[in-house]
Nucleic acid binder design. Structure first.
Length: 592
RNA sequence: CGGGGCGUAGCGUAGUGGCUAGCGCGCCUGCUUUGGGAGCAGGAGAUCGGGAGUUCGAAUCUCCCCGCCCCGACCA
């Protein structure tokens, strides 16, 4: 089809909007693709809606190709099913709730496990009907505490969500694999550069779970990748246990521990500096490092029933505890750092100088003590002496202290060891564009979705849940496909194949442009014809680049000599093409 | 929810107690111009986020509220 700039409902902005930071937000607003209408709520303007629908179409085609069936649920949902599964309260503040005129509770669906489960329950009752995978492309609502980055994280967004239903775990595995494959072909077609990382199932419940992360600096998820192909969300990353020498004689081969006066060493850095500066403390073989110190952190952990218990965590002093990894490790329990009142309840803890000698279930404090996987038999540490102003040196794990177990929650640092190949991990940021879960029986159990198996026994259906952020994918593509001039859409995503500029004022130029537009249109190409009168060529060129259409054709001063200019948006290369061949040439460019 | 920044026309902004709130872009009219965000002339467009207060006088000072952006907390 032909879209004409002279009549299109579009206004591009010369300046970046002041409230937009990330490239996708900035460029989608500047290009007139989207406009904000409320916090985290956006409208799609004509050009933006074309892009959105292209992404949606690709997602739909890939789902259909995989054999999943599309349905459409309401966004407005009754409270009851969500009450049954506990999510009416579990979802908390993020759930958009409303009441009807009779004071009944409703919600705007954040995700649709409940109603899908109930629908299948209403129709199916035999194992013969399974497996089944159904999906919808729907507007979702989450009252995010802080919407941000334009349409990357909104309160209203469009998601493709699928649900699989199987009689047993083998079936679930197969359904999961089918979705995984469909997601790979979908994101490949969307021209996204992404990784698949193992993830935590989190609040969704269930077991196996992987995230598809589109690499982008502005991404909210941190993951690690290795040259061997291993990738993981930092929350789910497993750090290998440090190697140790079982032959080592801890008493004979290692110096014995000794307590030292170390005033003015409130931080790890100052402790290391003092240890190296004092000749009586210096190591003969090398300087002390922050990683030779042992940092012990006190937390108060609250379980699902609201009961508190203290927990001590020991990590090498060169790293912080990563709160997201901690949260993932303790889930469903939640933790917070010790406060003054907590320290008051444990007078044996000398704040800032806590050492493992008094930690552990069997110790004086009876506080459970978990340690980082790098802390193994024979490792020697500088750590607090449980007396203010004193540290203990050469405290050896396995000889001078033990822990109650391993906890892997220290922050991940570039260069950390890969658990798969032993190589070096690299940290990166990504946008979560897809997430696949094995839910298991959580929802089917709660809502009573059972079928008769071949033995006539009732079995609870096992489910999977699979999401793709459709609107978010548009922003993710924009993040990965832009330059300093504007957007650079992959052709299948682009709102048009050709941006055709009439650069000049003569009727001949406009007539020639109109003629070309019609010829390409007849060949099935999508053309934006910049037929604006009285707009200087510079404006048209800039808009053509800002809007990011892959092929730009200029009808202008070359027309007299019989040439048309054809530009490639990605490479910036331009070529003069004869008017006689330009239709076929551009058609070929656009279709190969 | 905590910390920081901000709110003046569709967009970007100037304006720290004093005349009719200024400028650029965009928009309208006319003329000129047409290969990289044109020129001249004229014009429309502002509850200065909202409310209360201080003052002879408030965009400007005070208080409360609302909203936006960033960081954190939170986040299938």
């Amino acid at each position: 089809m032909i879209s004409r700039m002279s009549t299109m409902f579009l206004r591009t902005l010369r300046d970046d909007p002041a409230d937009a930071e990330v490239p996708s937000h900035r460029l989608l607003v500047r290009g007139g693709y989207v406009r904000r209408i409320a916090p985290g709520v956006f409208s799609w303007l004509p050009l933006g809606y074309k892009v959105f629908r292209n992404v949606e179409r690709i997602v739909r085609e890939e789902m259909d190709k995989a054999g999943f069936q599309e349905v459409h649920f309401p966004s407005l949902l009754p409270r009851e099913p969500y009450e049954t599964t506990g999510r009416w309260t579990e979802y908390g503040e993020n759930l958009f709730r409303l009441k009807d005129r009779r004071d009944n509770d409703y919600l705007l669906g954040p995700t649709h496990e409940e109603v899908f489960t109930l629908m299948v329950k209403g129709e199916y009752s035999s194992y013969r009907d399974l497996p089944l995978s159904i999906y919808q492309i729907q507007t979702k609502f989450r009252d995010e505490a802080r919407p941000r980055a334009g349409i990357l994280r909104g309160r209203e967004f469009v998601m493709k969500d699928s649900y699989s239903f199987d009689v047993d775990h083998e079936g679930l595995e197969a359904s999961y694999e089918r979705h995984r494959k469909a997601y790979i072909s979908t994101f490949d077609r969307l021209n996204l550069d992404y990784v698949i990382v193992s993830a935590m199932a989190g609040a969704m419940g269930g077991s196996r779970s992987e995230e598809f992360l589109a690499s982008a600096e502005v991404g909210e998820d941190t993951y690690v990748k290795c040259s061997c192909g291993y990738a993981a969300n930092v929350e789910a990353l497993i750090i290998p246990m440090a190697k140790f020498n079982p032959e080592l004689n801890l008493d004979a081969d290692l110096p014995s521990s000794h307590v030292e006066e170390t005033p003015q060493t409130p931080t790890i850095d100052s402790l290391v500096a003092v240890s190296n500066a004092r000749t009586d403390l210096a190591r003969p073989d090398r300087a002390w490092l922050a990683s030779d110190t042992l940092k012990n952190l006190l937390l108060m952990v609250t379980d699902a029933s609201g009961n508190d218990r203290p927990l001590a965590i020991g990590v090498p002093g060169d790293r912080e505890v990563d709160m997201r990894r901690l949260e993932a490790a303790l889930y469903p329990e939640v933790a917070r750092p010790f406060e003054e009142a907590d320290f008051a309840a444990y007078p044996m803890l000398a704040k800032g100088y806590i050492g493992p000698q008094i930690l552990g279930k069997d110790s004086e404090s009876e506080i459970e003590f978990l340690t980082d996987p790098r802390i193994v038999r024979g490792t020697r540490w500088i750590t607090g002496a449980n007396v203010s102003g004193k540290h203990v040196f050469d405290l050896v794990f396995g000889r001078d202290f033990e822990s109650d177990g391993i906890i892997d929650v220290a922050e991940v640092i570039d260069g950390d060891t890969c658990n798969e190949c032993g190589g070096h991990l690299e940290k990166a940021r990504g946008i979560e564009i897809g997430h696949i879960f094995q839910l298991g029986t959580k929802y089917a159990e709660a809502l009573g979705l059972k079928v008769l198996d071949e033995n006539g026994e009732l079995v609870t259906v096992t489910m999977g849940s699979y999401g793709i952020g459709v609107s978010r994918a548009v922003a993710a593509i924009a993040e990965q496909h832009h330059d300093d001039k504007g957007l650079v859409w992959p052709r299948e995503i682009s709102p048009a194949d050709i941006y055709l500029v009439a650069a000049g004022k003569t009727p001949e130029i406009f007539a020639a442009a109109e003629d070309l537009a019609e010829q390409w249109d007849a060949l099935g190409l999508r053309v934006i014809l910049d037929d604006r009168m009285g707009v200087s060529p510079g404006v048209k060129f800039n808009d053509s680049e800002l809007l990011g259409i892959p092929t730009i054709v200029v009808v202008g001063r070359g027309l007299e000599k019989g040439v048309i200019e054809v530009k490639d948006r990605v490479s910036g290369e331009r070529a003069d093409v004869s008017v006689d061949t330009v239709v076929a040439d551009v058609h070929r460019i656009c279709t190969t």
